[in-house]
Write a protein that binds this DNA or RNA. Structure first.
Lengths: 262, 262
DNA sequence: AACTCAGTTCCAAATAATGGAATTTTTGGA
DNA sequence: TCCAAAAATTCCATTATTTGGAACTGAGTT
């Protein structure tokens, strides 16, 4: 039994709570009770209690005007998550080197499901702040790091991810078919380099290379990104070897630092 | 009834899950099952299921060597929490102005219970990265922003916070008695300025001013911080009016931007 | 081979979550 | 200011999930 019931948001009570939390936290604007009710599809009473619990736990905040906004406890947890991420720590010096070599923005992103989550970013100008990009998620199929990461997956895992994937067209260049994506991934596997020529955001180009570690079940990517007016084909080709080299160096350091054994 | 039962980690299943999550996420080093068992005080079976759920939800990650580490979903949630925080957004330009005026590190922290949670930080040198400080929590009674925030509380709220508060001595200058803290808060209320002369970390001094908004139930503080060798009494006194001014400007902007009404 | 310790699975009993409907509060229009 | 409609909150018998002691597995040791 229960063949088609369990799909997402499934871990008993916790799963439901998290799915409500995410709905509220990732919404563009503050949501009131009824807004949440509409997207959550849960009965009034149930949802109300779930929200109350989330508020009591400090994961959400209930403003005086009845709007639910993300709570501060999330920040506390995330700073730990970021500061203690070993992969990020290992990669950091290589990202900085890559930034010095290119002068453009460098990203580190890991694959999580069909999304890329940005773990780190090195950028020149701009005041020092938690970058809004860090922690952000983008679809894997239309970003440089995303495609690089997908190319590092084995056939089985890739197939699982791709089944049922819906392609959304972000720009005229976005890849919107499974066949085209598979072609692109084959090309990336051969060259070890993924390009993003304004496929996700108009005016933004990037070069990326895969970083993976089977032993740690880690699939990620590094990239150098810049505005199209500054970054032409020549520039992309010039950066490609440097990005590939950085990716290789990170992988080498990973196995050296975190043990070639276990 | 239920007089001494409910205290912390109390919101049914969610509360227990969060308390386990926090124990793992805020630990210094990765914890294995038995380590968590020791601190959580829960039965084996129960804890095992809770951890499994947290892993399934992506809040924790279970490494191949059986160590639990914070998961990536936390980052995703936190970036939303940070990016969408209206108070932070309103204060940001004033923090930057304060940084330009002083050349030293500027903090914005809000009071949550007995702790100060740092919401933002502006700092000069140092590569651009999510600052480890953001999202960090420190005890309120021994930090500049913390004392400033406490001074903005009314007698009743302050009393509730102080009852049962344990003073930990971080440095020889740390305030370690309720009476001394109340004296200090009275002084802060008069002058509108809180100093931290190496009370929390040796070699670190700071000037802070309270930022609060009764309508929004917001109690916070802004500060300028620097190393003792560069920051003497003269410097502190010189910055004090600027910090107080920035705090005032933030409060004014708050009521202007987010509505003088509700 | 026997032992130990860490991790995992099992299942009847206990507990917390559910959800439909009633109640209270807020909103905004007359 | 008052009233009606909408939104938010509370209630509680039913139902589903969590609980936790104990038994099991398996890797590493003596």
């Amino acid at each position: 039994m229960a063949s088609e019931r369990d799909e997402e948001g499934g871990t008993g009570t916790l799963g439901k709570a998290m799915s409500v939390l995410e709905a509220v936290a990732l919404a563009e604007r503050p949501m009131r009770f009824t807004d949440v009710l509409a997207v959550s599809g849960q009965p009034r009473g149930t949802l109300h209690r779930q929200l109350s619990h989330l508020v009591q736990e400090g994961l959400l905040e209930l403003r005086p005007d009845h709007a639910y906004v993300p709570g501060l406890r999330l920040l506390k947890l995330a700073s730990a998550s970021w500061a203690r991420n070993e992969f990020r720590a290992v990669a950091a010096p290589f990202l900085e080197a890559l930034h010095r070599q290119t002068g453009e923005t460098v990203h580190l992103g890991v694959l999580r499901g069909r999304e890329i989550i940005y773990l780190d970013k090195v950028e020149s100008r701009q005041a020092v702040r938690m970058n809004s990009q860090i922690g952000n998620a983008s679809p894997a199929y239309c970003t440089g790091v995303g495609k690089a990461a997908l190319a590092a997956l084995d056939a089985e895992a890739l197939d699982a991810l791709l089944s049922g994937l819906e392609f959304r067209r972000f720009t005229p260049q976005t890849i919107t078919s499974r066949a085209a994506l598979l072609d692109e991934l084959a090309r990336i596997r051969l060259s070890g380099i993924a390009f993003d020529r304004e496929e996700h955001e108009p005016g933004i180009r990037c070069v990326a290379a895969p970083v993976f570690d089977a032993g740690r079940a880690l699939v990620a990517g590094v990239s150098v990104t810049g505005p199209a007016y500054r970054v032409g084909e020549v520039q992309l080709d010039d950066w490609a070897p440097r990005v590939r080299h950085a990716a290789g160096a990170i992988m080498a350091e990973l196995s050296a630092r975190l043990g070639p054994q276990r």
